[in-house]
Amino acid sequence: MIIRGNARVPKTFFERLYYAVLPLTATLFLFALLSAISLYPFGSVPPLPAPYIAGAFFASFMRLGVAYGIALIVAIPLVMLSRRGHFAETFFLSFFDVVQSVPVLAFFPLVAGIFLQFGYINTAAIFVLFLAMLWNIVFSLITGLKAIPRDISWAAHVFGVKGFAYAYRVLLPAITPSLITGSLLAWAQGWNIIIVAEVLRVYIPYGTGADDLYGIGSVLVDSITAGETGTFAVAILFLVGAIALINFFVWQRLLKYAEKYRFE
C-alpha cells in the first residue's frame, strides 16, 4: 500500500482486487445468493446444465459486442459532425438531447416489429442494444472533446499536426478516458436492456418462449416465468460473477490505463 497525500493507493494485485471490486462484487453476489435462496425449494424442474447457461451468457455477450461495435462506428463520425462549426454543434447537441431522452424501450415494439417481419430477430435485439449504448458513447465523447485544453489544440496547429494526424495523434488519445468511461456506461446500459431485448415473444402475435433469442436475458425471464427457479438462481449467480470478472479484468484495467491520457 502506498500513501499518497491523504489517499491510500492500492498497489498489489490483491489490494486492487479488494479496493476496486471485491466489496461491490460481494454485495451483488450476496444479493444474488439471497434471491436464489428465497426461491428455494427450486421446484421439480432441475436447473439447466451450466454449459447451457454459460453459452447463453456468451451469446448475450456477443450480441452486446456487436451492438457496441456499431455504436462506436456510428458515434465517432456523429460527434465529429457535431464539432463542425457553431451551427452544427447547436443543432446536433439539441438533437442528441431530445433523442437520447426518449426511453430506448419505447422504440422496441416498432423496431422489433419491422425486423421480425423480415425474419431478422437477432438484428432487432442488436438494434435496440445499439440505441441504448449509442448515447452514452456520444455524450462521453462530446464531454471528452470539450475538455481538451485550447493550448493543446493550438500547439498541434503551431507544430503542423493537422487533419488525420491531428485526429490520430491528438484527438484520439485526448478522448481515450471519456471513451473508456462512455464504453463502460454503454455496456452497463446494454446489460440492463438485454433482459428485455432477448424476450421477443412479447412482440410476436401468439408468441411463445420458443421465439425468444438464446441468451442470458431470455434464460432469466423464461426460467422465472416457467417456475424454473433453480435455473434462474444459477443464471443470476453466473451473470453477477461474470460481470464482476469483466469489470475487474477489463474495465478496471482500462480505467487505470486511461489515467495516462488525462489532462491535469
Binding site: 493550448d151 493550438w154 499536426v161 489532462f263
Partner: peptide, 26 residues
C-alpha cells in the same frame, strides 16, 4: 514558427522524448 505555451501544452500521454519530437513527424 514554433511556440512555447504558458502551461507547457505538453501531450500528457507522450513521454518527454515523444513530446520533444511532436512537431517532427510527417
Amino acid at each position: 514558427i514554433a511556440m512555447v505555451f504558458q502551461d507547457g501544452a505538453l501531450m500528457p500521454w507522450l513521454s518527454v522524448l515523444e513530446n520533444i519530437s511532436f512537431g517532427l513527424h510527417g
